[in-house]
């Protein structure tokens, strides 16, 4: 599929950047003319993925987070969120609803929310070298 536009940004794993990241991707996605509901879904999915990097990938330190977004000719938005942190030992287990290593401050619903708010999500990870989450969401064409 032909790529129409792309965005790439990198920032430190500080929680003030959560709002920045989801707002930036939503602003980029607005050229697809999404509904408020579609925009809300995109913001939420980005927020979940970026928060995971901040909370889980770099629990005791500050690291880099990369977010890339692409728009394809068929009105699909692709979002990639990458870190170079701790990594995930068992991805299937991590994706299961309510699984968390984060204690009482987390609910273990992040991956479940990302999955239900996008059309497709893939997770690649290696312990000690980082995690890449990719999500695709097709925006309905209206006229």
């Amino acid at each position: 599929m032909k790529e129409i536009n792309s965005l790439k940004m990198e920032f430190l794993s500080k929680s003030v950047n959560e709002g920045f990241a989801r707002t930036a991707v939503a602003a980029f996605a607005s050229q697809l003319d999404p509904t408020l509901e579609e925009l809300g879904d995109i913001k939420t999915a980005v927020s979940e993925a970026v928060t995971n990097c901040i909370v889980h990938a770099y629990p005791q330190s500050i690291g880099r987070i990369m977010v890339r977004a692409k728009i394809y000719a068929d009105n699909t938005l692709e979002i990639l969120v990458r870190d170079w942190g701790r990594g995930i030992a068992d991805i299937d287990r991590a994706r299961a609803p309510m699984f968390t290593t984060g204690g009482e401050e987390r609910s273990g619903m992040g991956f479940t929310i990302m999955e239900s708010f996008t059309d497709r999500m893939t997770v690649r990870s290696r312990e000690g070298s980082g995690t890449t989450v990719r999500m695709w969401r097709k925006i309905a064409v209206r006229r």
Binding site: K43, T44, R106, M109, I113
Partner: peptide, 13 residues
């Protein structure tokens, strides 16, 4: 105006 899974943990707690 916005809530993610962090809000779920707040509600459950």
């Amino acid at each position: 105006a916005f809530m993610d899974s962090s809000g779920i943990a707040v509600i459950l707690k």
